[in-house]
Amino acid sequence: MFNRSKKRKAISYTVILFSSLLMLTPLVSAALNSLKSYKEYTAIPVQWIPNPFQWQNYIEVWKMTSMDTYAWNSFIVTVLSVIGALLSCSMVAYAFARLEFPFKNSLFVMVLGTLMIPPVVMIIPQFMIFNQLGLVDTLVPLWILEWLAQPFGVFLMRQAFLAIPKEYDEAAKLDGCNPFQTFVKVYLPMCKPQLATLTIFTFMTKWNEIMAPVIYLSSEDKFTLPIGILSMSGAWFGQEQYLVAAALMSLLPILIVFLFAEKYFVKGASSSGLK
């Protein structure tokens, strides 16, 4: 048995090392590209290692663009979205999973249905609504919908609540908790992995979103990072290594946040409520 687990580890290591290599090579190559001069960038045969490392590419990009503003906007949108999604989705999902109320099933079918509606269908009418509310060219349309329980999160959290044995419910009821208290005290703590998943998911979607910012934002000082970078393409003909530098620079803030949050996600995932 000891041997078997050793063998398993060896296989695992090989698989993971190989796949990590595949994951990182493109990033490293791009990072090297971002540090080249244009001559080196377009040299044939390819010159892999820049000589010297042109760190000033990054300084130039920083000077020429409003990267800090873009990052701040992305941050605001993402954080507000994550908070909204966690609160609203779990609450709604709990009601669907554990409470009995009229029209529950038909409502839930609608949730599933809306999950399948291509968001683009609703862009124009939704734009008209936000326009009426005077919220166009603000960050609000980018996060407010997350506070109103998006179907993905509801679905995810409902699956999680369904997997929890019903006995917990009854125990809480005997303690005199109302459904809301049961939800907060009993159910939520047991679903940390799913909450973590939802956090990651919302974080990713919002941080990388391109379509909605393109439609709702027009002033450059409201741009989020992805469209900020996109708006630079074509800005530097014959200096494309700057574009690579700009793109990688836009990655830095989220990378830092991720490296910190990583710990939390792991903890959330490992301290599961199920025994």
Binding site: V92, A95, W147
Partner: peptide, 8 residues
């Protein structure tokens, strides 16, 4: 409670 919680 159900309705209240699905209100969002």
């Amino acid at each position: 409670w159900g309705f209240l919680m699905v209100s969002p």
